[in-house]
Simulated scan of single mutants.
Amino acid sequence: MSIAAWDSFLEEQDSWPVASRTEDSNNHTTTARDTLADTTFVKRKRMSREERRWQILQAAVKVIAVKGFWGMSLQDVSDELGITEAALYHYISSKDDLINMVLSECYDTPDADEYNAVTAAAVDADGHRAYYYPRYCLNIVLYNLQRPELVQLYSVLNGEALSPAHPAHSFFIGRHLRQWEMICSMNWLLPPGINEDQFYDLYTLAMSAMDGLQYRWLSDDSMSLLEQWISVSEIIFPEAQWRGFTDPSEYDPSNQRCLLPLTLSARG
């Protein structure tokens, strides 16, 4: 896609998180994305309750990403932390409680929502803020490149949670529509002719494609998730239709053009 603002993302791999790179900066050979190679947590004295709680969540992410919910035990998490299982119960009530904490506090977070939205918006001369959906999707990829261990956790649990007996079943079954409700609350700049029903289908297609690419990225160390997403974007958001609606850099504030008539909400 001929969007100059996107070219820089492919040219600046040295600034990417290590887990996101496809080449070693010294010898240009493929390196593995080992999302789980950190050492066991070192027990610290006088750790506050919130610090310890966050440490427990980090340890749980590491264990669950490898073993899944069914395969992990609370003893695995306490071993990772270097504490007793009894001590773990001071912070959680059960294994189900832990998985719900991980999903609600580590994956879908306000920080993630803000990161994805903040650079996907343009503000016109009248102060109206509108969002570019292709750039919003690109931001999701850029954010997930920074947290491969959580992408692995999400992928493992998403498959497991197909079973109604899984404690995260409701979370994953309802997640698509919960995210859509958030999307609907934002003011989107879309090409003429795209209505809300079509935008929902587009949202479903984009998120499904992203999930599939992330599965491949986790299993194939030679794959660049960013490059693959930009390539797929050319198909999902064809330039002939989306030119001017792809990235905030396409908006020229000097012409003082009002963006509201171009938004989905203005189409009723």
Rank of each mutant, 00 (worst) to 15 (best):
A168G: 08
E196K: 12
E149H: 07
A4V: 08
W229C: 00
I236R: 03
N144P: 05
C258H: 10
C184L: 12
D113F: 10
F199W: 14
D76N: 15
D197Y: 09
C137E: 02
V156G: 01
T84Y: 10
P167M: 07
R243L: 06
A240I: 14
D76K: 04
V18C: 05
S78P: 09
W54D: 09
A125C: 10
G174L: 09
R178T: 09
P134Q: 04
E51F: 04
L36N: 15
D34Q: 11
A87E: 15
C137R: 00
Q228K: 13
F69M: 05
Y107W: 15
Y133E: 02
L259V: 12
L157Y: 01
E181V: 03
A112D: 04
Y203Q: 07
G268P: 03
D220S: 06
C184E: 15
L98P: 03
M186T: 05
R33V: 10
Y203D: 10
N187L: 11
H90D: 14
A120F: 01
M72A: 12
I230C: 01
W6K: 01
Y200S: 06
H169F: 12
E234Y: 04
D247V: 01
W54F: 06
R243A: 03
N26A: 06
D97G: 07
Y131I: 04
S78R: 06
Y143H: 11
N255T: 10
Q58P: 08
S265L: 13
W6T: 02
L10T: 10
L103T: 01
D211S: 07
A37G: 12
Y131G: 02
E227F: 05
L138P: 00
V123T: 15
R175T: 07
L264I: 11
R267V: 11
V141L: 04
D96M: 08
H169S: 10
A87T: 15
V66R: 14
H166G: 03
D97K: 09
G82H: 09
R44P: 08
Y200R: 14
P253L: 03
L177H: 11
N187Q: 15
R147L: 07
G268Y: 11
Q256L: 11
Y131D: 05
L162V: 14
W242G: 01
I83V: 15
L74E: 14
I173D: 11
S104E: 14
R267Y: 09
L225M: 08
V102K: 00
A130W: 01
A120Q: 01
P248W: 08
D76H: 13
N255M: 10
E23I: 06
I64N: 00
Q198C: 09
L213D: 02
V102G: 01
R53V: 04
D24P: 06
E196D: 09
L177G: 02
S222G: 12
E105D: 14
G174I: 06
G159P: 03
I3M: 02
E11S: 09
